[in-house]
């Protein structure tokens, strides 16, 4: 698990293109890669699917990892903004020539919505069941947006490890959501 997350990051560190980039670009780029890697653990922690830890502990980790992912997004966008303000502004305004920026910025906004939902659940008076469904839906937007964003980019990531990580991230999210929302209720009903 840790290895699956670290290998793609490590391989990207050997990209020959890094030599031609400034520190803000390198840091911003790696914040994106780390954010993608964190998305692998995030749903599994939520569902308590990682072996060796108590569910309550995994929940706490899930919450911390959520803030870590938001921090990664902030560093990613900030680093790119320092590197090239016009390209970053184009992306944020959805007018960039690259389709991957549309997916990336959509995922960013979904991440921000997730944070607002987490912070304001009680104030908004959402029932926990409703809130979980909304949270799952928005989280899926984060995952799918990020994965499509990543696979289209020609950047520092080594292609095979990038595709493998993206497939794993997508699988983890789908298994978690389908498992919690479809399979578990069916099992409960069958036993019912």
């Amino acid at each position: 698990m840790i290895l699956a997350m670290m290998v793609p990051v490590a391989l990207a560190a050997f990209s020959p293109w890094l030599a031609y980039r400034g520190p803000a670009y390198i840091i911003g780029g790696f914040a994106g890669i780390v954010g993608l890697a964190l998305l692998l653990a995030q749903p599994l922690l939520a569902a308590g699917l990682l072996p060796g830890a108590r569910p309550a502990v995994e929940r706490r980790w899930h919450r911390w990892l959520g803030w870590a992912i938001l921090t990664a997004i902030a560093i990613h966008v900030g680093g790119l903004w320092i590197t090239s303000p016009p390209d970053t502004v184009d992306a944020l305004l959805f007018v960039a020539p690259t389709t991957f920026s549309i997916y990336g910025v959509t995922a960013m906004w979904a991440g921000i919505v997730t944070a607002v939902l987490v912070a304001a659940r009680r104030r908004m008076g959402l029932r926990y069941g409703t809130w979980r469904l909304v949270h799952n839906a928005v989280a899926l937007v984060v995952v799918i947006g990020t994965v499509v964003h990543a696979v289209q980019i020609q950047g520092a990531m080594e292609p095979v490890s990038k595709w493998a990580l993206c497939a794993a991230v997508l699988a983890a999210a789908l298994i978690t959501v389908l498992g919690l929302r479809v399979v578990a209720p069916l099992v409960r009903r069958a036993r019912g």
Binding site: S84, P86, D90, V95, A96, P97, T98
Partner: peptide, 8 residues
């Protein structure tokens, strides 16, 4: 002109 053509 292309999108993003004048950037930088």
């Amino acid at each position: 002109s292309m999108r993003g053509g004048s950037n930088n």
